[in-house]
C-alpha cells in the first residue's frame, strides 16, 4: 500500500532532470514537499507516536524502494531520525533530518560545540538527531553552520557541520544512530541492487552480440546468478539488521550491515561488467545505482568499524561460544 504510493510518487515526479540537479548538489524542494505531503518522514513511527504503525516487513519494503528508485533526497535518513527522536521523546523534525554520532563534541555551560562530519544534505536539513555519548540531541538548523563541503560518490552533498548550540532538547539515547543509519542503508542497498539486477537482465536480454542476446551465453548467465545471490544476501542482511536493531543487538546490526555493504560492491561490479561500456556512462541509468551503492556502503560507521565490532564479539565467544552466538544473530 505505502509501497505503491512511494512507487507512484517518484515515478511521476522524479525524472532525469531532477537526478541531474541533485548531482549538482541542488535541493529538490517540490519533490520534498510531495514527500512530506505523503507523510513519509513519519513512516517508521508507531501509531502512538503519530506514525503509520507499519509492520516491520512493510517498513523494510518502503526503505528498499527508496533505494530501488535512487531517490536523491534524505528521505530514509529523515525517517530514521524521526524514529530515533520519537523513541527519545524529543520533538520530531519539521522538514528533512539527518542522524549522526559525534563523540568528540564538547559540552560546556550548556553549549554543545564541535564538528559533525559529512552529513547528507546538511545544508537543507531542519534538524539533526545527534548522539554524543549516551545522549541524543535534537539540534535545529540554527545550531550549525557549514564548514567543509563534501561530496559523496553519487555526487550528493555531504557537508561537515560546525555545531554551536545552546542545548534545549536532549534525552537519554534510545539506540545508536549509527546502527539506525547502517540498517536503513542496508535496505537502500538491497533496493538499489535489485534495480541493478533488473537493468542487467534487461540489458543482457536485448543487447545482441555475435548474433544472440548476451544472456544466452552461459558465462553471462553465471554472472547473473551470482548477482541474484548477492541480492538475496543483501535483502536478508537488511532484514537481519532491522530485527537486531529492534532487539538492541549491535552484533546483529553489524552482521546485516556488513553483508549488505559487501553485496553493494560485489553486485555493482557484476552489473557494470555485464552492461559493458554503456554501464560506465551517465547515458544509461545504471550509474544512479552503482554510484549510490558505492556511497552507502561506507556510511554510518565504515566496514572496519562494524567488522571489528563483530569480530571482537566472535573472539570473546571463542571455540565453545561461537556457534551459539551465530544462532542469536
Amino acid at each position: 500500500m505505502l509501497a505503491d504510493m512511494i512507487q507512484r510518487l517518484f515515478e511521476r515526479s522524479l525524472g532525469d532532470a531532477a537526478q541531474s540537479e541533485a548531482r549538482e548538489g541542488k535541493w529538490l524542494p517540490a519533490l520534498w514537499a510531495e514527500v512530506e505531503e505523503m507523510g513519509l518522514p513519519l513512516a517508521l513511527l508507531s501509531e502512538e507516536q503519530g506514525g503509520f504503525g507499519l509492520a516491520p516487513a512493510d517498513q523494510g519494503e518502503a526503505l528498499r524502494l527508496l533505494g530501488h528508485l535512487a531517490v536523491p533526497l534524505p528521505v530514509a535518513e529523515t525517517m530514521a531520525a524521526n524514529r530515533l527522536l520519537a523513541e527519545a521523546g524529543l520533538p520530531l523534525a519539521e522538514g528533512a533530518a539527518g542522524l549522526a554520532r559525534a563523540d568528540d563534541l564538547t559540552l560546556a555551560d550548556g553549549r554543545l560545540s564541535g564538528t559533525v562530519h559529512r552529513v547528507a544534505w546538511g545544508e537543507n536539513l531542519d534538524c539533526l538527531a545527534l548522539a554524543v555519548g549516551n545522549t541524543l540531541y535534537h539540534v535545529p538548523r540554527s545550531g550549525w553552520t557549514l564548514t567543509e563541503p563534501g561530496t559523496a560518490l553519487n555526487f550528493h552533498p555531504r557537508p561537515s557541520l560546525a555545531i554551536d548550540w545552546v542545548v534545549d532538547a536532549s534525552a537519554p539515547l534510545p539506540h545508536d544512530p549509527l546502527a539506525e543509519g547502517a540498517t536503513v542503508r542496508a535496505f537502500q542497498i538491497a533496493g538499489a541492487l535489485e534495480a541493478a539486477l533488473d537493468l542487467t537482465l534487461e540489458h543482457t536480454a536485448t543487447r545482441v552480440q555475435f548474433g544472440k542476446p548476451l544472456q544466452k551465453n552461459q558465462v553471462v548467465q553465471h554472472e547473473l546468478a551470482k548477482l541474484a545471490g548477492e541480492l538475496a544476501c543483501a535483502t536478508a542482511a537488511a532484514d537481519l539488521a532491522a530485527e537486531a536493531l529492534a532487539r538492541g543487538d549491535l552484533r546483529g546490526v553489524a552482521a546485516g550491515s556488513l553483508r549488505a555493504r559487501e553485496a553493494a560492491g560485489n553486485g555493482a561490479s557484476i552489473a557494470t561488467q555485464m552492461h559493458g561500456a554503456i554501464g560506465f556512462t551517465r547515458e544509461h541509468p545504471l550509474h544512479l545505482f552503482t554510484t549510490s551503492l558505492w556511497t552507502w556502503r561506507d556510511e554510518f560507521g565504515g566496514q572496519v568499524f562494524w567488522a571489528t565490532l563483530l569480530g571482537r564479539a566472535a573472539m570473546a565467544a571463542g571455540e565453545e561460544g561461537y556457534w551459539p552466538m551465530v544462532t542469536e544473530l
Binding site: C233, A236, A237, L240, G252, A254, A255, G256, S257, L258, R259, E262, Q303, V304, W306, A307, T308, L309, L310, G311, R312, A313, A314, M315, V326, T327, L329
Partner: peptide, 15 residues
C-alpha cells in the same frame, strides 16, 4: 578482527 567479523556476517546471512 575485521576479517573474522566479515566471515561471521556472511555466515549469519547464509543461515
Amino acid at each position: 578482527l575485521a576479517m573474522i567479523g566479515r566471515l561471521t556476517a556472511q555466515l549469519a546471512v547464509l543461515r
